[in-house]
Each structure stands twice: as C-alpha cells, then as structure tokens.
Design a protein around this nucleic acid. Structure first.
Lengths: 213, 213
DNA sequence: TAGATTGTTAATCGATTAACAATC
DNA sequence: TAGATTGTTAATCGATTAACAATC
C-alpha cells in the first residue's frame, strides 16, 4: 500500500517492539504511551513514534497506543499474518537443533522438511520427518510451495545450494553458513553468522579489559 | 593504547573483513588495495580505509595492504589473540549443537563445560564432557577462569542465571535466550535472537511480494 | 474544556562517501 | 622520478533526537 522505502534500521527494531508488546499483551495491559514504552525498552520515545509512523499512525493523540492493536499491526508488517513453509538444508547438529528447538508453528512457520547429502542419515527421523536426500530438494520446493530455506551446511557447499534453491523458486534464505551468498536481489537473504557475533563479543571484552570501558 | 571510542557499526564490519582476509591469505595473496577489496566485498573503498584507520594505519601509500599483516592485526583487535574459556548453560538442542558444531578451538575459544538444570542429563557426555548441574556453575566459573558464558536456556530463566554469572565474575555473555538481560555495563552481552532474525527475513519477503522490491 | 500524547517538522548528530594532499 | 594508493579532511547523506502544533 504505502510505497516508501523503510530503512533496515527500522525493520531491525520491529521484532523487539513486537516482543515487548506481546509481553505487555500477555500481562493484560491494554494501552501504553510512547514514553512508558521508552522507559521499559530503553529507547527514546521519539524514536518509537518515528518508527511506528513509518507505517502510518497506530496511536491516538492524548491516549497512546492500544497494545493489542499495535502488536497485531507490527506482526502483520513483519509478515507474520501469512504462514511460511520452510525447509532445512543440512541435518547436522545445528540443522537438527533448529528443527527441534524452534516453536516455529506458533508464529506461522511450518517446518516441512529437512535435507542432507549424507545417505547414512536418510533413516533418521526428526520431528517425525525423514531426512531427505539433496536431489529431492528442487522438486520438494516446487511441489510443497516452500518459501524459506534454512541453510545449515558448510560454507563450501552453501553458495551452490543457494543457487539451486533460487532456481527452484525459493523466496528467502536464512543463511547460517559462514559465507556471503550470491543471489538475485529479489531473493531475500538473512545471515546468521555465529562466529561473527562471537567476535563482536570478544572485541568488546578486550576493549573493556584494555581500559576503554 | 588508543583511546578513541570505535562505533559498533565499525566493529560489526570487522569480522567480515577478517573472514575475507583469511580467505585471501589462504589463497596465497600477499597484498591488496582498498579498491580491490572493495570490488570483492561490495563495500566502498573509502569505507574500508576509514574503518582500518580507526585503529591506526595498516597500509602503505602507493602499495596497499599486506594481507597477512592486516589479517593478524584485525584478529588482534577482535581479541582473537587471547584464548577465551567458555561454558554453555543449557544442554538442550541448541546448547548441544553449539558445543558440537563450532570449531571454536581454531580461534582460541576453549569449550570448558556445559550445564543444565535437568538431572536426567547428568549422565550424558558431550564432547567427552559430562553435563553438570547448575549449582556447580559459580564455583566452576571462578575456578576455571571462565570468561564467556553461552546462554541457551529458556527466557524465563535467563535473566536470573545471567545475574548469577555476573556475580561469579563472567566477562561476557553470548545470549541466545529471547530476552534482554540486565547486567552491569562492564559485562559485555552479545545477543543472538534467532526469531528476530527470522522476522526480518519474513518482513523482506512480504515487502517484496507487495511490490516494493 | 484542559491535559495528555501523538504525528510530524526541524535540528542535531553520526556515519558514509568523496576528494585530495601526503608519501611510498 | 612518476604512478599508485593510502591517510585524512571535507561534503554529503541518513538516522536520531528535540520540539511543538494538531487533536483526541
């Protein structure tokens, strides 16, 4: 509807708003002002209002924001109103953990399959689903309407597998492989580079120890 | 040494430089200019030079940067020259996956122990290490000189456990629990909120489908 | 109505990019 | 030396914060 381009800085904050609003909702709180939310979340009230107003006015002057309404609107903006069909590529430790750990379903993420190139795993079942061979991947993506692939394979294989997924019609890739994928710009990629994250932590630890805290 | 405060925007880019430089080094490439690195990494040469110059000059006019030297300097800045002793709190799917999956040791991350509150797990061994009960945690942190704790426990427990870790003298927390921890500012926290990351992906998928790509 | 609080414009701040003098 | 490329200053761009008019 609205055609303004929203900055990724704003998008990056939406899930956190969503989480806090969900908690407020669960506590039965019905309304909240930007100032109250500011106190809880430790961001400025000004930023909160600016962020929300990127998507049109969700509040009411003199009153504040209705928690439940705002929660649902942000969920909608984040695409959580639609269900997403996802597969996991790579049934190693991390792939299996993600398959089991995440209660995706609660937010409309439907875990549809898991693939691996290792034949020794094909008997194994994860969440009552057999691990499938890689050569079934493209057909599966097409026939089951998969829109998201989770990549938990070594970086040496990730780039080529990503290209196959794109060819098969995937919409987004949640990339845990430690490599930058090369896909057309209409394919969304969200990287989770765990070792990068750990390095940021060690930087900040070192910095503090060197007396710059 | 240098007391300027480096922005987290810069820090966030360092691990990626480090990764590319490591790859160049492995390919036997000895020197690189900011322009060549710009072409490979798809960031501006200007930004590369500005980023590096936050830490003093690593290059040589008319020549460029020595790959290996730059790689090692950035590693040092990131705190990878020192070894880090880490424990994992929470031996669920994700905790076990992180214990097994990461080849931490390569970069000086020493996996020292894993803890859980579930007695049924105490017999289990992960990477030849028994899963320890939570009440041994503080003593273990103190006696084994643990500086980093990885939190892979439910958010309902994370805040309290983080406080115990701080009390025991932890320096940094790699937080996978979906909650904001409340720790003193000298304790470094790096959050990995997987569901937030997934929501950013669905936002971008939705946005594109709604014709804003 | 008066008070409260948003929506929005203006001001500030910080980060990125461009330009070029320094120098290898 | 001449050419190349950094280190660094200046210009631009974008994001955040402040201020306040609109309005519930």
């Amino acid at each position: 509807m609205d055609n303004r381009e929203i900055s990724q800085a704003v998008i990056g904050r939406l899930p956190r708003y969503f989480r806090y609003l969900g908690e407020l909702k669960d506590e039965g709180i019905e309304r909240i002002s930007s100032q109250e939310l500011s106190d809880i979340m430790k961001v400025t009230a000004s930023q909160i209002r600016q962020d929300f107003n990127n998507f049109g006015g969700f509040g009411q002057q003199g009153y504040g924001y209705k928690v439940e309404y705002l929660y649902e609107e942000i969920g909608r903006i984040l695409g959580l109103n639609k269900s997403h069909h996802l597969i996991i590529i790579g049934a190693g430790n991390l792939g299996q953990a993600l398959a089991n750990y995440m209660n995706f379903e609660r937010r409309g993420f439907l875990f549809k399959g898991i693939f691996d190139k290792n034949p020794a795993l094909y008997g194994t079942r994860i969440r009552n689903m057999r691990i499938r061979p890689m050569d079934e991947m493209e057909t599966f993506v097409r026939e089951s309407g998969i829109d998201i692939a989770v990549l938990t394979i070594p970086k040496t294989e990730a780039v080529a597998v990503a290209e196959r997924l794109v060819e098969a019609g995937i919409r987004g890739i949640w990339n845990f492989a430690h490599v930058d994928l090369n896909v057309p710009e209409e394919i969304q990629v969200e990287n989770v580079h765990l070792s990068d994250s750990l390095m940021k932590l060690t930087y900040n630890i070192s910095r503090f120890e060197n007396g710059e805290g």
